[in-house]
């Protein structure tokens, strides 16, 4: 199961990298979404994909370690917020700069 997950995560990271290297801003945002998705899957896998490893003292119940899930929930909320902000920003930038092409957003003013 872990090996399968490793492949899934790898494919997610690969697609994320590909998307983030493209020029369209929207694709980049989708790429960041995939990247954080891959990271969340990684936490889940790293926490162990089996039951019975609960951090409960003196009890051998068939629970799964809840910490990775708590971490993922937190990370999902955060990436939800960041992605939302990023989308709004991208939309504003598109309105203001008239392009969503990263090539045309290049350059800084005021340099020698």
């Amino acid at each position: 199961m872990e090996i399968l997950m490793a492949f899934v995560i790898g494919i997610l990271f690969m697609s994320a990298t590909y998307l983030m290297l493209s020029k369209s801003l929207l694709r980049i945002i989708v790429g960041t979404g995939l990247l954080s998705h891959g990271a969340h899957m990684l936490i889940l896998t790293m926490g162990g994909l089996k039951t019975g490893s609960a951090p409960l003292l003196g009890e051998n119940a068939p629970y799964t370690d809840p910490i990775p899930q708590a971490l993922i929930l937190t990370a999902i909320v955060i990436s939800f917020g960041v992605t939302a902000f990023f989308l709004v920003l991208a939309y504003r930038a598109y309105q203001e700069l008239g392009t969503d092409n990263m090539d045309r957003m290049r350059g800084t003013e005021g340099n020698d």
Binding site: M20, T32, L35, A39, I43, M46, G47, P68, F86
Partner: peptide
């Protein structure tokens, strides 16, 4: 965002 994703990954490895 990329560095945050790396942070999560690093924490995941450390936790494992």
């Amino acid at each position: 965002v990329i560095s945050s994703a790396l942070f999560v990954i690093a924490v995941a490895y450390l936790y494992s």
